[in-house]
Write a protein that binds this DNA or RNA. Structure first.
Lengths: 234, 234
DNA sequence: AGAGATCTTTGCGCCAACGCAAATAGGAGA
DNA sequence: TCTCCTATTTGCGTTGGCGCAAAGATCTCT
């Protein structure tokens, strides 16, 4: 695991508007945890004992169906918290947190984080704000899944990825971690095959590009059209 | 609007473990809002200005698609908060809150609730716990919508309804508010027709009963089977 | 009791997306 | 460079569930 650019913690949403001393207090009691590509911070159904803040790398939160199907609940970018919802009352993590690139996270245990919230109520407000955002996003995806068809769901998923983890290059916007068709299928609630079909079509139309495990968004404007209005032509 | 049984606020999850004085403080600054069946506490896209706690009645939170489709995000039972996620950071309500029976709620405005959280950090912990639960439920439903088919989703929806708002009678478990096929469709991400087909089948098999706008669950055990294992026979 | 409105059931055709299967392509390691 | 392994593409048959449509049911209001 080489030098990975580290996230400046003062920019984490959780710490917005919190005074430096309080942050320092929290950092002092945090544990660092570094894992390699493909390993996990925690498994679904592990007892939920800690709260994580991603410093570098990229993580996906996945739920597994009892008959094997996988669903990507969320992608985690540096600066974001994960695996904490359950710390506040749940007993198990609701999903597994798997690293899609080598990753480092700060980890606080249950008790510590509860004490910190009690000691710094502003932290609690921030946390509530973040949770609210998560909830809204989940509900939006619920609506999409219930009412929209695959092509549009995929367009939305790509736009979210671009916003959260897009790197603008000369060619277009590239997603900062390996993106397979399979994972896009797990994100949109579709099959590998359907996603592949749609993406090869988009590739031909020049909307997207990139090869194996690589996703390049060339025409964000047109992808936005697909995500919102009725598709013009196939 | 006749006499409706009022919920004892000390039993609200939000207030668990909070001392009586703090609760009294909060109640002192709360507004009561009563609305009739069919009207709304707030509309989707209204500026999110207040936080609600349902005292009596039943409310549904619905999101509307731009082409008319409706999705039920959540059913609210007495004692539960709603329309607050957005108060913590959002600008608009993410869904409309429509009364399914005459309903009464306590309402706090944005500033008040923020002050209360800052003054009583234990309240913040409770709130975080509740939000975490909501988030987990939303993520579970995401997984269901992505991987399960309508019949099973319906079974799960009915079980959730039974748990949250079921009234056990001599005949079976009855849902405490009017339940149309349409609203079940909006809850499961299916169409009215598909739901109707499934339910008439279940009615014939003796799993469910009840007529227009009325839902009676007769065989919870068998419904649970449908919700989990593979369906044995159609 | 009758009229109208709303909710529910049911039939039928259709299509988006799945599931299976087999071919192709790109990377990693020896 | 060759081999193995994993990712991707593409064809083809199948189907769950949608969409349209029309016929009952049940409730409400006059």
């Amino acid at each position: 695991m080489a030098n990975i650019p580290k996230f400046d913690l003062r920019n984490a949403t959780l710490f917005a508007g919190i005074n430096g001393c309080a942050i320092a207090d929290l950092l002092a009691v945090a544990q660092y945890k570094a894992i390699l590509y493909g390993s996990v911070f925690f498994h679904e159904e592990d007892p939920a004992s800690s709260c994580h803040l991603l410093i570098s790398g990229h993580v996906k939160l996945v739920q597994h169906n009892f008959d094997g199907a996988q669903v990507v609940v969320r992608f985690v970018a540096p600066g974001q918290m994960f695996g904490w919802a359950s710390v506040m009352g749940g007993r198990h993590y609701p999903a597994s947190a798997e690293a899609m690139t080598d990753s480092v996270a700060l980890v606080w245990d249950n008790q510590t984080i509860r004490r910190a919230v009690l000691a710094h109520p502003a932290l609690a407000l921030n946390a509530l704000g973040i949770m609210g955002g998560r909830l809204r996003e989940a509900e939006d995806r619920l609506r999409e899944l219930a009412t929209e068809r695959v092509e549009r769901r995929l367009a939305r998923a790509l736009l979210r990825l671009a916003e959260q983890s897009g790197v603008v290059t000369a060619e277009g916007t590239e997603i900062a971690f390996p993106v397979s068709r399979q994972i896009l299928a797990d994100t949109t609630g579709a099959t590998l095959h359907t996603i592949s079909r749609i993406l090869s079509n988009w590739d031909q139309r020049g909307l997207t590009g990139g090869g194996r495990q690589k996703l390049l968004l060339l025409r964000l404007d047109q992808i936005k059209d697909l995500a919102e209005s009725d598709d013009a032509a196939s």
